[in-house]
Design a protein around this nucleic acid. Structure first.
Lengths: 151, 151
DNA sequence: TATTGTTATACTCTATAACTATA
DNA sequence: TATAGTTATAGAGTATAACAATA
């Protein structure tokens, strides 16, 4: 007896994607008030409160290729939110840092992220929210091992 | 006393996005063996085992604009996986259907989706998997109401 | 006028690969 | 040769807006 052809909704991956997309989209709309994208926020938060950081470090920590980091950094620089500087010792290296304006903006963006989380997860019963957090973090830990090395 | 600036990892939305992206990416890699993308799979599954379907119906059910449906359909047609036909009564309407090759392919893609789900969620304890499913479906139901109407 | 679908355009996100400068 | 970063190119995914045909 042949198994039935499974439907989209038969997969947890489907529900995960649907919910994640909506939550991220809602967050993107909040950020767009400040003319910042989700990827830009992520990079800005990585740079916040730190000195100059090498693009290669960002690539590693954000799971992006170096090319992607360059492009994202270009956009931040174009918006006056980041600056590029030459490395001192090794002249191949560059560093990225936030501008003063960006340093002032990050707390607002963080507040937007807090609000978004509250909007989407705030009404979950405490037990469920904790369960969700535990499951996601467990899975994230596992996929950090499995993950295909970028670049 | 000012609240600390929250970090990326302080948000459930962050973990949701990380995990969802990895699961979807892994699925995309499976599908790419068959030269199909995740969005194409979703549309194919919507069309599978059905007669001709109007693009507008697909747009509604998939949460896409009509323009996005046209573009996705164009790609399926280009790959020989779907066909476009004129509507009968109302001559403004078009319909989409799968080709025979696509009908034969969908069960393979469904099996790939099953495998992917098994790989990523199969090792969760039963209770956790059920909890995750329940939480995601509850959230999905809620956002179906909240969701910004497309188009 | 309203509706169905397509087309044109644009932008984000991401990758791969070639290239430059330096080590 | 190897490494850090940039540049060039490409493609998925999605949107908005203008348009054509039809109702």
């Amino acid at each position: 007896m042949p198994a039935a052809v499974s439907e989209l909704t038969d997969h947890l991956g489907y529900w995960l994607r649907i919910v994640s997309n909506h939550v991220s989209y809602a967050f993107a709309r909040r950020l767009s008030d400040k003319d910042v994208t989700v990827a830009e926020w992520a990079m800005m938060r990585m740079l916040f409160g730190r000195g100059p950081v090498a693009p290669s470090e960002l690539a590693m920590k954000m799971g992006l290729t170096r090319g992607a980091v360059t492009k994202l950094a270009d956009r931040l620089i174009g918006k006056g939110l980041a600056a590029r500087e030459e490395g001192q010792k090794d002249r191949r290296t560059q560093t990225l840092r936030l501008t003063a304006r960006a340093e002032a903006l990050v707390p607002e963006l963080a507040a937007a992220a807090d609000q978004n989380d509250l909007e989407w997860f705030g009404s979950l019963p405490d037990g469920e929210r904790r369960a969700l957090e535990r499951i996601l973090k467990t899975m994230a830990a596992r996929l950090a091992l499995t993950s295909i090395p970028v670049d």
